[in-house]
């Protein structure tokens, strides 16, 4: 199809169109992604995550400024939440990066989460493939402002910058499971503010416990002030050093393999889910099932197992 060639030629208009098709789950989606798939795998994908207001967008803006010196083509995907009420969204991350919008080497796309939980949107993974195939060799994904469990970015990014700012909890917060475990490089932003040193010390303390037996693997912690453009070059140097270390340890390959595995699992279960919906039509049956359970005429596992059995028997797909 024509659109794939235009994307490979570097047309921003066609790239943007294809992103919408992927986002809207349009019928051409699978064809486009598969056609471009052989051209993917060249980009470094950096995920930037952290709580709302920790300075993710401002940090991305300054990373863009720093990385542009290296003659790269950079794609940014900035995800913000959709309203659970209207379905609309106010996509505001871009405002902080807008000074780059005239630069032909930068492509910024805002995405709404569209009901997807996990800190990104369902289409984000495919959108990185489009940017990758279009020749963007650095892709930065900014997640929505996250809490403790929105960790899906690990399935997309090669490396994760976890952004923190002073005033957001003590060292016990930092020891909990979830978001604190997924950072590759920890960024203490707003270093000019009171309490920034304390955040760094607490992180040090927690990571020292975690890597007690192998301190050489301890994650870097960098203090920056994104707003004042301080510490960014040093941060990016430590990001690249960290990547080189992973490559030397053979962990880079493993990371990419795990990503592909998770992606295939996701596509597989999504397809099965769609098939089930077509064959059992369970969205429609659901109300009847609820009645059966309310009246205690059925039990949840027995009911579903029974339905599944009849689905397998009746359908010719398995």
């Amino acid at each position: 199809m024509d659109i794939e060639n235009k994307i490979l030629e570097g047309s921003p208009r066609h790239l943007a169109r294809a992103i919408s098709m992927v986002e809207n789950n349009s019928p051409q989606k699978e064809e486009i992604i598969d056609a471009l798939y052989p051209k993917t795998g060249n980009a470094l994908i950096i995920g930037v995550t952290g709580s709302p207001g920790s300075g993710k967008s401002t940090l991305v803006d300054k990373i863009l400024k720093n990385e542009l010196k290296k003659d790269q083509k950079i794609g940014v995907i900035a995800v913000d939440p959709s309203s659970p009420f209207s379905g609309g969204a106010l996509l505001g991350d871009r405002i902080r990066m807008q000074k780059h919008s005239g630069n032909p080497n930068i492509f910024i796309r805002s995405m709404a989460s569209r009901g997807h939980l996990g800190g990104i949107s369902a289409a984000t993974s495919d959108v990185t493939k489009l940017l990758d195939a279009a020749g963007y060799n650095l892709i930065i994904i900014e997640t929505i402002g996250v809490g403790q469990t929105e960790v899906e970015i690990i399935e997309l990014a090669d490396i994760i910058l976890l952004t923190m700012a002073p005033g957001m909890g003590d060292d016990i917060q930092a020891m909990k499971a979830g978001i604190m475990e997924i950072g590759d490089v920890f960024v203490v932003n707003k270093k000019d503010k009171d309490g920034a040193d304390k955040v760094k010390k607490e992180l040090d303390y927690v990571l020292d416990i975690k890597y007690h037996d192998n301190p050489e693997n301890k994650n870097p912690i960098k203090m920056v002030s994104a707003l004042n453009n301080e510490g960014i070059e040093e941060l990016m140097n430590s990001v690249y050093n960290y990547i080189n270390k992973l490559k030397k340890q053979g962990k880079w390959e493993d990371k990419r393999k795990t990503k592909i595995k998770k992606e295939l699992k996701k596509i597989f279960s999504k397809k099965i889910h769609e098939l089930m919906d077509i064959h059992i039509n369970y969205t429609e049956k659901l109300d009847d099932w609820v009645k059966l359970l309310m009246n205690k005429e059925e039990k949840p596992y027995s009911l579903i197992n029974k339905e599944l059995k009849s689905f397998i028997k009746e359908s010719e797909i398995l």
Partner: peptide
């Protein structure tokens, strides 16, 4: 119910057009 992107202040016509295209 729409997805809205705001550019922020003091944009050139070119940067508004680039943004409109990238954001489709």
């Amino acid at each position: 119910g729409y997805e809205v992107i705001y550019t922020g202040l003091r944009q050139t016509p070119q940067s508004i057009v680039n943004t409109a295209i990238q954001e489709d």
